[in-house]
Design a protein around this nucleic acid. Structure first.
Lengths: 213, 213, 213, 213
DNA sequence: CATGAATGAGGGTTCATTCAT
DNA sequence: AATGAATGAACCCTCATTCAT
């Protein structure tokens, strides 16, 4: 499952061999980008890592930027689909939230290179060409919105929430937990953070003493 | 106060005029970096924006990287000092937390370019030379730790918290709120998010109904 | 034979075309360096002279310095091998010395650009990276040493010679004769200087009258 | 006596203070040029070594090249005058030659920086502006010519000499001996080479056995 | 399809020289 | 006279992209 771009579909259609090369390049690129950052990486490095010639990359990708775009399009899209699937498995809002967070941490832990590239590129303001990167985050936050609304219907979540803020609140917290894990060198188990994190989301850090404030 | 690098001290000492040029370059650089990203920006662009010759930049900065480093050293350090100062003004832990968040949002709203550059560069994994960037975030999280501990002593914050996680939880949520504001084009008032955000941190999103979960 | 870098072997291996481009660049470089000096020459000039793009040079040479280094490595090394070969053809020490000097003048006359670059760079003290340049001169003087020793064994050369000095004496004299020829614009036949020069080495400028001094 | 440009006369005329600064810059320049080569040296380095501001150099020298030109004009010219003086003190041709060589080695040993700069720049073909550098060598060789002619009149030097060649022969040999000394780091006594060298010039390296060749 | 040599625009940086103080 | 901050032309080198094989 690791580094698997198995469902990626290249423009070059569906011949097995091509798909194979397409995936190899994409995996190589994400690995190189993760290690050095997108800008510091060269096409030559990606080509060497993928075991193809420099020129071959341009048979599968329009240009360097396009590699990143396709990464988001094929790899992340698929991850986000999994988020949806896992959320569906829960029945209550809290279960769904827990499933979302757990799967998020799980997937990013499974593919650390993806996590690194995702974190870095998501926080760039530039590169208008990559608007879809933001679409990805939006999709994530849409899932949260739905869960929150269900929770409010169920009566398990506060009705006085500013949902637009809650989405950021959760998204940001999870991202930063992943970010820390990346910078720590991936030393500890990321998934074990899921339950404590959900607990924080639901109950907050305050006691009833603090409620009066 | 906007874009003020007034306490920046170049090697060239403290004569009014020199500081002036040093600050002009730094402000210009942060503006250009914010607009295009660090790597997409050229020294020539920064020079033009600052109204100086390309070579002049090298009288004040060792190289292009050094501009970013000095930005963190002089601009952000000063902002973080303000965080500490404002936190001191609160007496209870919740007040302190609220002051921290409010000042954070306030300062980043005051200097949007700083906010953009800060967000972008903080999430890069590469560039070991910029370790101090991470030190900055650490400093921030240290403040949070202290506040949490005070709250636990006061009895206003839960004693069963994993503080290492709470720090990320709060840091990430605030960052993402700022990030959203940036990407929205700075259209709304960022500071008004402070109180709702603190409320989320303290009380969470759940009702007592959810506690049983 | 002129300007022939035929034995040069680039990393890019030995396909005719590649070697061709490698040689073309090397020849162009030596020509440009000879005309303007190494430092006054630009990569762009060398590229234009060689009929390639600037960047192409970096496919064959690590950097500008490397061009000079390879020049010494491939061109001069080969010349010096010829010196050895010609020396071997003589039987007596005087014949060997004469062959050495004649070949030296011959080869440098054949490739005036090489002569110019060699003369100029050999007298620079800096540039530690080019130590091999000095190794080249040392190799030359080693040949002389051997010849002198043979002459002493034969009884045709004085036994009271400080060989370390004699090497410099001969090396310097020949170099200066070449130097003069270069600065004259290569107007006269350099090789015809060989016999008179050897005569001076062997007999000196004095008469028996002077011996008493 | 070391590094003494005491008889240098700047265009700025004869005020003591100016002359002082002029000499300081010239000495500093030669020191820096000797250490790093002319091209690797910067005006800023020379200025720092001389203890003046960069701009000050342009009050005494037209440009960077001019420093080297003035070096030859004032420093070397004066050395060459000393050569003439010392030659005059000899009566026989051999004495004069010996005095020339000895003084040459003596002066260059006394001012190693001058020796280094002289050796390096004399062997550059470029820089037409520095034709006078070659004039210097010519002046030197003119002295040799006169001595040879005297020797021929005296009967102590061979009449069948090609004087144009002999000049190069002697000049080159001495230069190379100095060159070796420089590259050795100036470890041994250069002046002690004078007598053996003159002996080589007069008697050659051959025995009477070799005469037949 | 695949290759990889070739291209050349572009960028960071240096440094001789100027000139306002 | 002296200063040294400012200038900007020039240069080395990188690397995304192309295209002939």
């Amino acid at each position: 499952m690791k580094n698997g771009f198995s469902s990626g579909r290249s423009i070059i259609a569906s011949k097995g061999k091509h798909n194979d090369k397409y995936r190899r390049i994409l995996e190589a690129a994400v690995k190189v980008f993760a290690e050095q950052g997108f800008h510091q990486s060269t096409i030559a490095q990606v080509a060497r890592e993928a075991g193809v010639a420099d020129g071959t990359i341009y048979l599968y990708f329009k240009n360097k930027d396009d590699i990143l775009i396709q990464f988001y399009q094929y790899k992340t899209k698929q991850v986000f689909q999994k988020f949806r699937d896992e959320v569906e498995k829960g029945s209550t809002a809290v279960e769904k939230l827990r499933n979302l967070i757990r799967t998020h941490l799980q997937e990013f832990q499974n593919d650390r290179n993806m996590a690194i590239v995702y974190q870095a590129e998501t926080h760039q303001n530039r590169r208008l060409a990559f608007e879809q990167i933001r679409d990805m985050s939006k999709m994530y936050r849409d899932i949260i919105s739905e869960v929150i609304e269900q929770g409010q219907d169920e009566g398990t979540m506060r009705k006085d929430l500013y949902v637009g803020l809650v989405k950021r609140f959760i998204n940001g917290a999870v991202d930063e937990v992943i970010n820390s894990w990346i910078h720590s060198g991936g030393k500890y188990d990321l998934v074990s953070m899921a339950d404590p994190l959900v607990d924080l989301f639901i109950r907050g850090i305050g006691t009833h003493e603090a409620d009066g404030q």
